[in-house]
Design a protein around this nucleic acid. Structure first.
Lengths: 249, 249
DNA sequence: ACTTGGTAGACTGTCTACCAAGTGCCACTT
DNA sequence: AAGTGGCACTTGGTAGACAGTCTACCAAGT
């Protein structure tokens, strides 16, 4: 739902009907610019955002900024306090947990649907991404790894053929990446092995297995994050234990 | 995410700190009014919505209308065409299907989490809703049944304690209700038996069972809708009649 | 008959200016 | 030191203006 009217690549019509680039509404550009700045930390968490200030900063008037801010508010990037202004959202303690739980549901279902209808080309692309990702992982290219990871997950949700899953998962994913990126590199090795297994399950059309793997995959990610928060810097251990484990180290 | 800053009942702070009623932003009221009008058919599907027209109709200026329209666009209620205006969204053929698939994932996970932490009071409330719903169903109060159904589902998602699931499921639910309500009454009887089983599973803390039942429940709903679209399910109906079938009761 | 060109009206996207009301903060008072 | 009052700032909303674009329609040309 978040997608605004017609996205840049929205029309997959018959090949050859390339629509000319339509000038993006300003509010859209402002929205993009602001999310960008929030994610990369230019606008740090908790910062007070003033409309005129942003407007001046971006060289536009208040109107587009207001509209962008409202969308950012709806999507949880900023908190709008009437009469005062917007503040960059400060994630609550349990927020990442909830986000990852939602992601588990959404992406697990996506994986299931993807496995139900495994498109040849898409599967090939998935395999390629796996390979690339593993390589980048080895060479220590963190930025590239994160990007490839995102691409892989995104492609799987798209394979579900369900635009709502795509949209929701996309939203969640961006948020997760925002919170998570600073501590991302920890869980690299195992992650790509899981991806490979996942892609195989999808290629084989094994719905249950694909869904299961994706769920565990997300769950591992959550554990990794949780451990980092509580100060356990070990790699993910084979504990098939579902209770969040507090380590008192 | 969709919730705007602080909703009317948003703050469940320590009891006794009743915040005084803050005047709702106009854009919010406009948003509500428009969704209302879309759902009840005052603004029929495909209709061209003109800002000044709506503004005049609602007695406000363009700005709040614009902001409301943009939110409606983000949530899929209207389609915004740059330079032309907003049209009330016309649901695609497969849209309900996708919506219900997403709902299955979201609410099934919610049920699982609800079962993981079954709050006493909430469970009691659930049971009550089940009873009320079954009664309304028998007396043929369709409107009440639909409302109670929505309340029950909503309460379950809230029990999950996951604000993202609540938000996404809420969005999906409203959309489903819009498309689905005209043909809702068909699936009344069995539905409430399933609800009762579901509530029991939650009360027992049986995660897997609760998730399973909720998934099947949504799946049944989808089948019911699908059958209605393609004609009567059980009997062979060679009549290529595509008009929506009115129930004969 | 079909294309082209032109014209006109409608609406959005954006900007500017302005005002009322609410919020947060600071200095002043007690 | 704590409470109070007031001030500056910010949003929320209104009004009006203007350019660019979209749709439709008509007329002339091929």
């Amino acid at each position: 739902m978040t997608t605004t009217s017609a996205g840049p690549e929205a029309n997959s019509d018959s090949p050859g009907v390339r629509h000319v680039k339509r000038p993006t509404p300003l509010r859209e550009s402002v929205y993009e610019a602001l999310t960008e700045m929030i994610i990369d930390g230019t606008l740090e968490r908790g910062r007070h955002l003033v409309e005129v200030e942003l407007a001046g900063m971006l060289g536009v008037s208040r109107q587009p900024v207001r509209e962008a801010l409202q969308r950012l508010n709806n999507e949880g990037w900023v908190d709008l306090r009437p009469g005062f202004g917007a503040m960059v959202h400060v994630p609550a303690e349990d927020e990442v947990d909830q986000l990852l739980a939602a992601r588990a549901a959404l992406e697990s279902e996506s994986a299931r649907l993807a496995a139900r209808n495994p498109d040849k080309d898409a599967v090939a692309k998935l395999k390629e991404l796996c390979k690339i990702g593993a390589q980048l992982q080895e060479t220590g290219d963190i930025d590239g790894t994160v990007r490839t990871n995102a691409e892989l997950h995104s492609l799987i949700t798209e394979m579900s053929g369900n635009r709502f899953l795509v949209d929701f998962a996309g939203q969640v994913d961006r948020r997760v990446r925002w919170y998570y990126t600073p501590v991302a590199p920890v869980r690299g090795a195992a992650s790509w092995r899981e991806h490979t297994r996942l892609v195989k399950a999808i290629a084989d059309g094994d719905e249950d297995k694909a869904a299961q793997i994706m769920r565990e995959h997300t769950e591992h990610t959550r554990k990794a994050y949780h451990d980092l928060q509580t100060g356990t810097p070990t790699e993910d251990s084979p504990t098939p234990d579902k209770k969040p484990r507090r380590r008192t180290t």
